[in-house]
Design a protein around this nucleic acid. Structure first.
Lengths: 241, 241
DNA sequence: GCCCGCATCATCCCTTTGGTGGATACCGGC
DNA sequence: GCCGGTATCCACCAAAGGGATGATGCGGGC
């Protein structure tokens, strides 16, 4: 079953290009690009100059403490946000988030760029600086705010069509309904039934029903086999001809 | 996480190229290329002119009845085998395998090409003909036997290094031991714990222990999340730099 | 010799998943 | 109006997976 590999390699490639761009335009200690929202079924994170386990730690312990966490900006149209604009130096230095998470990584300044689809934040580009690099200046923030619409455009004009194409491929090959494709995509993202139910606003029972149908149609017996198989399908575009 | 996608797209690409080659050299109704053995952790099948569910049916019901099934040739050095050389016409036509499986697909002649690694068959290229195309001639079989070593060479000189590279990538990124990589690869192939235990000659308990360690090191909580994450890792080669 | 990492297996316990058989509701076509 | 497909949910059960802990053996370094 595996594995596939899809030829172009999106969204990772887009994430890497974006990080390269901002990293070339302004000095950064490290950076990261997260795909998070419900529209970004192919979640993932690309990090620059950060050990991989930082992401785990953040997700597990520090996401809720993050003064710039996306949840705080859900119903706004904020596109670029900067830690130094939200907290005074005293507040930041005293915060658990800084002491426990930022300080050990030698981070002092943070700016985040958000990408949305219908108000939902679907991606976050985070930029980090050690104290030695100085704060993000107003000119730099203005530059980021100028940059954001273009990155946003690229994201939605290349990622979303790709996702549609993949849905169509899998849907046609295995005769899956729309809802079944929703579930299948989340399986590919590694989600549990509970997570799928939460994400799609369903009961776990419904998720299981859809999954049963998908298993039947695709001809597998477990979620793991399903994701391996579907990845294979996406990799070999002309399996049947 | 997904997804990953790896840039080159092996082994599917190799399988497709091989099928194109034999399909261009001799007339075929349909064909298929299976990666099967323990060395081919990235299993998969590519089919030409065959509906996808044929593979499921074969695996579930007819593999054991196949007069050319790889198990029969395990300890030989047979490289190309032909149904008409093994069974008389009367035997074939009377067989359940022909009546139940081949006939509905309008297949009359079959030839298989095997690929090995240390006696183990790790891949099978199967070629199928309707009666109208006539049997595989001795000249055609000789051609296939000439072709086999070259395909074999390509398989082992491009697939096996790729697998080593992927093992190294994942091993270094997450500090996995050799044995942990073995089980991780099988997770990516969609295997259950029982299947992994069987394949590696371990008890299920040991598999679970290795998996626990892998989960910890990679920072996930389930096999599904693991495979999504690892596929992402393989897709983004320069995540950390 | 001792310790540590690795690999192997076991036992218990709990959660998740998979399988079956329903039920309700909406919608669209014949 | 009925029927079939889709989508939603429920209950129940069995199987598999996940987590904790501990035990054994083996090999390599200090």
């Amino acid at each position: 079953m595996l594995h596939h590999s899809i030829s172009e390699n999106f969204p990772n490639h887009f994430q890497r290009e974006s990080l390269d761009l901002v990293g070339n335009l302004l000095p950064l200690s490290s950076s990261g690009f997260y795909l998070v929202g419900p529209d970004m079924r192919h979640r993932g994170v690309v990090l620059r100059n950060l050990p991989a386990q930082v992401e785990q730690e953040y997700t597990r312990h520090y996401r809720e403490l993050d003064p710039l966490r996306p949840a705080l900006f859900e119903r706004t149209d904020t596109r670029v946000v900067c830690m130094d604009e939200r907290l005074t130096e005293a507040e930041l230095l005293a915060s658990e988030y800084y002491q426990q998470f930022m300080l050990p990584l030698n981070h002092r300044h943070v700016a985040d760029m958000f990408f949305r689809s219908d108000d939902d934040i679907i991606a976050v580009l985070t930029m980090l600086r050690a104290a030695s690099l100085g704060p993000f200046t107003p000119a730099e923030l203005a530059l980021l705010r100028t940059l954001q619409p273009f990155l946003d455009f690229t994201l939605s004009s290349v990622y979303l069509p790709r996702r549609r194409r993949e849905r169509a491929t899998l849907g046609q090959r295995h005769d899956l309904t729309d809802r079944e494709l929703d579930v299948a995509e989340l399986i590919l993202a590694g989600a549990s039934n509970k997570a799928i139910a939460l994400e799609l606003g369903l009961s776990v029972a419904t998720v299981k029903t859809h999954l049963q149908h998908v298993f039947r149609k695709v001809g597998v017996a477990s979620r793991t086999a399903l994701s391996a198989r579907l990845l294979g399908d996406l990799g070999s575009r002309n399996t049947e001809r």
